[in-house]
Design a binder for these strands. Structure first.
Lengths: 121, 121
DNA sequence: GAGATATTCAACCTAGAGGTTGAACAACGA
DNA sequence: TCGTTGTTCAACCTCTAGGTTGAATATCTC
Protein backbone atom coordinates (compact mmCIF):
# COMPACT_ATOMS: atom_id res chain seq x y z
CA UNK A 1 0.00 0.00 0.00
CA UNK A 2 1.17 3.52 -0.74
CA UNK A 3 2.43 5.65 2.12
CA UNK A 4 0.35 8.78 1.64
CA UNK A 5 -2.59 9.46 3.91
CA UNK A 6 -5.25 9.43 1.24
CA UNK A 7 -4.10 6.04 -0.01
CA UNK A 8 -4.18 4.68 3.52
CA UNK A 9 -7.71 5.93 4.05
CA UNK A 10 -9.04 4.51 0.79
CA UNK A 11 -7.23 1.22 1.40
CA UNK A 12 -8.75 1.04 4.87
CA UNK A 13 -12.20 1.58 3.38
CA UNK A 14 -11.63 -1.09 0.73
CA UNK A 15 -12.50 -3.92 3.11
CA UNK A 16 -16.09 -4.76 4.05
CA UNK A 17 -15.11 -5.89 7.54
CA UNK A 18 -13.47 -2.56 8.23
CA UNK A 19 -16.40 -0.62 6.80
CA UNK A 20 -18.72 -2.60 9.06
CA UNK A 21 -16.50 -1.75 12.01
CA UNK A 22 -16.69 1.93 11.17
CA UNK A 23 -20.45 1.66 10.78
CA UNK A 24 -20.63 0.12 14.21
CA UNK A 25 -18.44 2.83 15.70
CA UNK A 26 -20.69 5.50 14.26
CA UNK A 27 -23.24 4.29 16.84
CA UNK A 28 -20.77 4.89 19.65
CA UNK A 29 -17.52 3.71 21.14
CA UNK A 30 -16.90 -0.01 21.42
CA UNK A 31 -14.28 -2.42 22.68
CA UNK A 32 -12.37 -4.89 20.52
CA UNK A 33 -14.53 -7.75 21.75
CA UNK A 34 -17.71 -5.89 20.96
CA UNK A 35 -16.44 -5.03 17.51
CA UNK A 36 -15.35 -8.60 16.82
CA UNK A 37 -18.60 -10.17 17.94
CA UNK A 38 -20.47 -10.00 14.58
CA UNK A 39 -17.62 -11.59 12.63
CA UNK A 40 -16.61 -15.18 12.14
CA UNK A 41 -12.92 -14.41 12.16
CA UNK A 42 -10.59 -14.52 15.13
CA UNK A 43 -10.15 -11.68 17.59
CA UNK A 44 -6.59 -11.25 16.40
CA UNK A 45 -7.77 -10.68 12.86
CA UNK A 46 -10.15 -7.97 14.02
CA UNK A 47 -7.33 -6.47 16.04
CA UNK A 48 -5.31 -6.25 12.84
CA UNK A 49 -8.18 -4.53 11.06
CA UNK A 50 -8.34 -2.03 13.88
CA UNK A 51 -4.66 -1.35 13.47
CA UNK A 52 -5.20 -0.60 9.79
CA UNK A 53 -8.02 1.78 10.67
CA UNK A 54 -5.90 3.41 13.35
CA UNK A 55 -2.97 3.94 11.00
CA UNK A 56 -5.35 5.56 8.53
CA UNK A 57 -6.49 7.85 11.33
CA UNK A 58 -10.06 6.60 11.05
CA UNK A 59 -10.24 5.47 14.66
CA UNK A 60 -8.54 6.39 17.91
CA UNK A 61 -8.21 4.21 20.95
CA UNK A 62 -8.31 4.86 24.64
CA UNK A 63 -7.46 2.80 27.67
CA UNK A 64 -10.08 1.81 30.21
CA UNK A 65 -8.69 -0.87 32.54
CA UNK A 66 -8.10 -3.92 30.34
CA UNK A 67 -10.31 -2.54 27.57
CA UNK A 68 -9.18 -0.48 24.61
CA UNK A 69 -12.27 1.44 23.54
CA UNK A 70 -12.31 2.45 19.87
CA UNK A 71 -13.80 5.67 18.62
CA UNK A 72 -14.58 6.81 15.11
CA UNK A 73 -12.50 9.72 13.85
CA UNK A 74 -14.10 11.47 10.93
CA UNK A 75 -11.28 13.79 9.90
CA UNK A 76 -9.77 11.48 7.27
CA UNK A 77 -13.22 10.80 5.83
CA UNK A 78 -13.38 14.50 5.14
CA UNK A 79 -10.22 14.29 3.05
CA UNK A 80 -11.46 11.27 1.13
CA UNK A 81 -14.80 12.92 0.54
CA UNK A 82 -13.13 16.05 -0.74
CA UNK A 83 -11.08 14.06 -3.23
CA UNK A 84 -14.11 12.26 -4.59
CA UNK A 85 -16.28 15.35 -4.75
CA UNK A 86 -13.73 17.01 -6.99
CA UNK A 87 -14.33 14.42 -9.69
CA UNK A 88 -17.73 12.90 -9.22
CA UNK A 89 -19.59 15.69 -10.97
CA UNK A 90 -17.34 15.92 -13.99
CA UNK A 91 -19.50 16.00 -17.07
CA UNK A 92 -19.27 12.81 -19.02
CA UNK A 93 -22.35 12.96 -21.20
CA UNK A 94 -22.28 12.51 -24.95
CA UNK A 95 -22.05 16.16 -25.96
CA UNK A 96 -19.17 16.87 -23.64
CA UNK A 97 -17.31 13.82 -24.83
CA UNK A 98 -17.78 14.92 -28.42
CA UNK A 99 -16.63 18.44 -27.68
CA UNK A 100 -13.55 17.14 -25.89
CA UNK A 101 -12.79 14.83 -28.77
CA UNK A 102 -13.10 17.61 -31.34
CA UNK A 103 -10.91 19.81 -29.21
CA UNK A 104 -8.34 17.08 -28.89
CA UNK A 105 -8.22 16.45 -32.61
CA UNK A 106 -8.05 20.15 -33.44
CA UNK A 107 -5.37 21.21 -30.99
CA UNK A 108 -3.46 18.01 -30.67
CA UNK A 109 -3.59 18.41 -26.92
CA UNK A 110 -6.08 18.75 -24.05
CA UNK A 111 -7.25 22.14 -22.92
CA UNK A 112 -10.78 21.65 -21.70
CA UNK A 113 -11.93 22.70 -18.26
CA UNK A 114 -11.84 20.25 -15.42
CA UNK A 115 -10.89 20.00 -11.77
CA UNK A 116 -7.22 20.53 -11.08
CA UNK A 117 -4.74 17.77 -10.30
CA UNK A 118 -4.64 16.01 -6.97
CA UNK A 119 -3.30 18.13 -4.18
CA UNK A 120 -0.58 16.50 -2.19
CA UNK A 121 -1.91 15.29 1.16
CA UNK B 1 -9.50 -7.61 -2.47
CA UNK B 2 -13.17 -8.17 -1.64
CA UNK B 3 -15.60 -8.84 -4.47
CA UNK B 4 -18.23 -6.23 -3.75
CA UNK B 5 -18.43 -3.10 -5.86
CA UNK B 6 -17.76 -0.63 -3.10
CA UNK B 7 -14.61 -2.48 -2.05
CA UNK B 8 -13.40 -2.49 -5.63
CA UNK B 9 -13.94 1.24 -5.95
CA UNK B 10 -12.17 2.10 -2.72
CA UNK B 11 -9.33 -0.29 -3.56
CA UNK B 12 -8.98 1.34 -6.97
CA UNK B 13 -8.78 4.76 -5.33
CA UNK B 14 -6.17 3.54 -2.84
CA UNK B 15 -3.31 3.96 -5.31
CA UNK B 16 -1.82 7.38 -6.15
CA UNK B 17 -1.05 6.35 -9.72
CA UNK B 18 -4.66 5.42 -10.31
CA UNK B 19 -5.93 8.60 -8.67
CA UNK B 20 -3.63 10.59 -10.93
CA UNK B 21 -5.00 8.72 -13.94
CA UNK B 22 -8.54 9.59 -12.91
CA UNK B 23 -7.53 13.20 -12.39
CA UNK B 24 -6.11 13.23 -15.88
CA UNK B 25 -9.25 11.68 -17.33
CA UNK B 26 -11.36 14.34 -15.68
CA UNK B 27 -9.79 16.71 -18.20
CA UNK B 28 -10.95 14.55 -21.08
CA UNK B 29 -10.51 11.20 -22.74
CA UNK B 30 -7.00 9.87 -23.23
CA UNK B 31 -5.20 6.90 -24.70
CA UNK B 32 -3.06 4.47 -22.75
CA UNK B 33 0.12 6.06 -24.03
CA UNK B 34 -1.05 9.52 -23.05
CA UNK B 35 -2.01 8.29 -19.60
CA UNK B 36 1.29 6.48 -19.12
CA UNK B 37 3.42 9.41 -20.19
CA UNK B 38 3.76 11.13 -16.77
CA UNK B 39 4.83 7.95 -15.00
CA UNK B 40 8.17 6.22 -14.72
CA UNK B 41 6.68 2.77 -14.82
CA UNK B 42 6.22 0.59 -17.88
CA UNK B 43 3.26 0.83 -20.22
CA UNK B 44 2.18 -2.62 -19.14
CA UNK B 45 1.99 -1.52 -15.52
CA UNK B 46 -0.24 1.39 -16.48
CA UNK B 47 -2.34 -0.99 -18.54
CA UNK B 48 -2.81 -3.06 -15.40
CA UNK B 49 -3.88 -0.01 -13.44
CA UNK B 50 -6.41 0.76 -16.14
CA UNK B 51 -7.79 -2.73 -15.83
CA UNK B 52 -8.27 -2.23 -12.10
CA UNK B 53 -10.08 1.04 -12.76
CA UNK B 54 -12.20 -0.58 -15.44
CA UNK B 55 -13.21 -3.48 -13.17
CA UNK B 56 -14.22 -0.95 -10.54
CA UNK B 57 -16.35 0.76 -13.18
CA UNK B 58 -14.41 3.99 -12.83
CA UNK B 59 -13.40 4.12 -16.48
CA UNK B 60 -14.76 2.79 -19.74
CA UNK B 61 -12.81 2.16 -22.88
CA UNK B 62 -13.57 2.56 -26.56
CA UNK B 63 -11.85 1.43 -29.69
CA UNK B 64 -10.44 3.91 -32.20
CA UNK B 65 -8.19 2.08 -34.66
CA UNK B 66 -5.24 0.82 -32.63
CA UNK B 67 -6.05 3.16 -29.75
CA UNK B 68 -8.17 2.33 -26.72
CA UNK B 69 -9.40 5.72 -25.46
CA UNK B 70 -10.25 5.78 -21.76
CA UNK B 71 -13.04 7.81 -20.28
CA UNK B 72 -13.88 8.65 -16.70
CA UNK B 73 -17.10 7.11 -15.39
CA UNK B 74 -18.38 8.89 -12.30
CA UNK B 75 -21.17 6.54 -11.28
CA UNK B 76 -19.11 4.47 -8.83
CA UNK B 77 -17.71 7.65 -7.29
CA UNK B 78 -21.27 8.50 -6.40
CA UNK B 79 -21.61 5.27 -4.46
CA UNK B 80 -18.32 5.79 -2.64
CA UNK B 81 -19.25 9.36 -1.83
CA UNK B 82 -22.62 8.27 -0.47
CA UNK B 83 -20.97 5.76 1.82
CA UNK B 84 -18.55 8.31 3.23
CA UNK B 85 -21.15 11.03 3.63
CA UNK B 86 -23.18 8.74 5.84
CA UNK B 87 -20.42 8.71 8.43
CA UNK B 88 -18.28 11.75 8.03
CA UNK B 89 -20.59 14.03 9.98
CA UNK B 90 -21.14 11.72 12.91
CA UNK B 91 -20.74 13.72 16.07
CA UNK B 92 -17.55 12.80 17.87
CA UNK B 93 -17.06 15.78 20.16
CA UNK B 94 -16.46 15.47 23.85
CA UNK B 95 -20.05 15.87 25.04
CA UNK B 96 -21.35 13.21 22.68
CA UNK B 97 -18.63 10.81 23.68
CA UNK B 98 -19.45 11.38 27.31
CA UNK B 99 -23.16 10.87 26.73
CA UNK B 100 -22.51 7.67 24.81
CA UNK B 101 -20.23 6.44 27.54
CA UNK B 102 -22.76 7.14 30.26
CA UNK B 103 -25.41 5.44 28.22
CA UNK B 104 -23.22 2.43 27.68
CA UNK B 105 -22.41 2.08 31.34
CA UNK B 106 -26.02 2.53 32.38
CA UNK B 107 -27.65 0.17 29.93
CA UNK B 108 -24.85 -2.25 29.40
CA UNK B 109 -25.38 -1.94 25.66
CA UNK B 110 -25.45 0.68 22.90
CA UNK B 111 -28.66 2.41 21.96
CA UNK B 112 -27.64 5.87 20.80
CA UNK B 113 -28.66 7.32 17.49
CA UNK B 114 -26.42 7.07 14.45
CA UNK B 115 -26.49 6.29 10.75
CA UNK B 116 -27.72 2.82 9.94
CA UNK B 117 -25.53 -0.09 8.91
CA UNK B 118 -23.97 -0.33 5.50
CA UNK B 119 -26.44 -1.06 2.76
CA UNK B 120 -25.41 -3.87 0.48
CA UNK B 121 -24.12 -2.59 -2.81
C1' DG C 1 2.74 -8.01 -47.55
C1' DA C 2 6.03 -5.66 -44.38
C1' DG C 3 7.07 -2.59 -41.03
C1' DA C 4 5.54 0.79 -37.45
C1' DT C 5 2.67 1.97 -33.59
C1' DA C 6 -0.61 1.02 -29.70
C1' DT C 7 -1.98 -2.16 -26.55
C1' DT C 8 -2.44 -6.48 -24.17
C1' DC C 9 -1.09 -11.18 -22.68
C1' DA C 10 1.85 -14.34 -20.12
C1' DA C 11 5.30 -15.58 -17.01
C1' DC C 12 7.78 -14.20 -13.36
C1' DC C 13 9.27 -11.73 -8.87
C1' DT C 14 8.71 -9.43 -4.36
C1' DA C 15 6.26 -7.38 -0.74
C1' DG C 16 2.29 -7.01 1.79
C1' DA C 17 -2.76 -8.07 3.03
C1' DG C 18 -5.53 -10.88 5.55
C1' DG C 19 -6.16 -14.87 7.86
C1' DT C 20 -4.62 -18.64 11.39
C1' DT C 21 -2.68 -20.44 16.02
C1' DG C 22 -0.17 -20.08 20.29
C1' DA C 23 2.08 -17.33 23.58
C1' DA C 24 2.57 -13.02 26.07
C1' DC C 25 1.03 -8.91 28.39
C1' DA C 26 -2.22 -6.03 31.23
C1' DA C 27 -5.64 -5.34 34.51
C1' DC C 28 -9.35 -6.98 37.18
C1' DG C 29 -11.67 -9.97 41.03
C1' DA C 30 -11.35 -13.35 44.64
C1' DT D 1 -1.10 -14.54 44.55
C1' DC D 2 -3.89 -16.89 41.25
C1' DG D 3 -7.14 -17.44 37.84
C1' DT D 4 -9.97 -14.89 34.43
C1' DT D 5 -10.79 -11.63 30.89
C1' DG D 6 -9.38 -8.41 27.20
C1' DT D 7 -6.01 -7.44 23.97
C1' DT D 8 -1.78 -7.70 21.42
C1' DC D 9 2.54 -9.86 19.67
C1' DA D 10 4.98 -13.23 16.86
C1' DA D 11 5.41 -16.70 13.59
C1' DC D 12 3.45 -18.72 9.94
C1' DC D 13 0.59 -19.56 5.53
C1' DT D 14 -1.71 -18.33 1.23
C1' DC D 15 -3.13 -15.21 -2.11
C1' DT D 16 -2.85 -11.09 -4.60
C1' DA D 17 -1.14 -6.24 -5.84
C1' DG D 18 1.98 -4.05 -8.36
C1' DG D 19 5.91 -4.12 -10.79
C1' DT D 20 9.20 -6.23 -14.47
C1' DT D 21 10.40 -8.25 -19.32
C1' DG D 22 9.41 -10.47 -23.65
C1' DA D 23 6.15 -12.05 -26.89
C1' DA D 24 1.67 -11.64 -29.11
C1' DT D 25 -2.20 -9.10 -31.14
C1' DA D 26 -4.53 -5.32 -33.65
C1' DT D 27 -4.52 -1.69 -36.74
C1' DC D 28 -2.55 1.76 -39.63
C1' DT D 29 0.77 3.15 -43.39
C1' DC D 30 3.69 2.42 -47.13
Amino acid sequence: MAEDGLSKVFAALADPTRRAILARLARGEATVNELAEPFEMSLQAVSKHLKVLERAGLISRGRDAQWRPCRLETGPLEGASTWIERYKDVQTDRMDRLAAEIDRIRTGTDRDQAPGPERGQ
